[in-house]
Amino acid sequence: MKIVVCIKQVPASNDAKIDPQTKRIIRDAVKSILNPFDNYALEEGVRLKEKFGGEVIALTMGPLSAEAILREAIALGVDSGILLSDRTFGGSDTWATSYVLSKAIEKIGNVDLVICGKQAVDGDTAQVGPGIAAHLNWQQATYLMEIRRTDERKILTKRLHENGYDLCEVTLPAVVTVVKGINTPRVPTLKGRLASLKSDIPIWTPVDIDANIVQLGLNGSPTRVVKTEPPAPRSSATVKIKGSPEHCAQELIHQLRLRSIL
C-alpha cells in the first residue's frame, strides 16, 4: 500500500495573536506543534504499512519551519516527508489548501490511501480531507475509529457519527480522516530519531506539482477573513456556593430559578 498522511503545523497554545493588517494568525509568535489529530493519522498510516507492506509519506503545506513536523513523522516510522512551501501558497483557505495537497498527491503517484486528521485545532474546519477527496474525485470516509483492509482494493471503515457509528466499505484510492480513538500513537524510537535527522526533505513549489497559479494562496481562495475579534467576555461574575450538600443543591435550584431556567 502506498499511503500519504497529511499533517499540519499548528500553534501550541490557543492564545492566538492576530495580525491587524492581514487578519491572519501570526504564526511566529508562539511555539508550533504537530496538530494533535494528525498524530493518530500518522500512527494509522505506519500500522497499515507494517501490516500490509508498502510505503508511508508525510505531506505538509506550510512555512519552511514546518519541516520540523515532517522530521517528527519520520521519527514515528514514516518513510519520507515532503514539504510544500512557497510564497504563492500563503493565505490559502481550505479550498486552495486541499487543491495544493491534491496536486502533490497526484505528483507522488500511485497513492492508495490518504489519511488526514479529523480537523486542525487552529481552524477547526475539518474541510481539508473531504476537499482533497473532491479534487481527486476519490471516495472519502470521515471520523474513522477503525480501518480494516478487506481486499487488495477495499477497506472497511468504522465511521463515527452523533448517534453511534456505521461500517462503510470504501474502494481505494480514497481519502479518510481519523479521530482520536482509532489507536494509541507510539513514542519515537532512538532509531527513528536518527533516521529523521538523516532524512532529506524535498521542498516542492507550484511548478513541481503543476499547480494552476490562479488557484493558489489568497487569490485562489474563495473565502476572506474580514474581521477578527475576541468573543464577548462571559457576562456574569461567578456565583460561589458552598456548605452542606443539601444547602448546595437547594441554592443551585434557587440560582436556576433566578435565571428563569426552572
Binding site: N14, V121, G123, D124, T223, R224, V225, E229, P230, P231
Partner: peptide, 16 residues
C-alpha cells in the same frame, strides 16, 4: 469561532 473559541472571525466570499 476559531482557536477553540478564543477568536471570532468574520468571513466573506464576495466573488463566488
Amino acid at each position: 469561532p476559531a482557536f477553540g473559541g478564543n477568536i471570532l472571525a468574520t468571513i466573506r466570499s464576495s466573488d463566488h
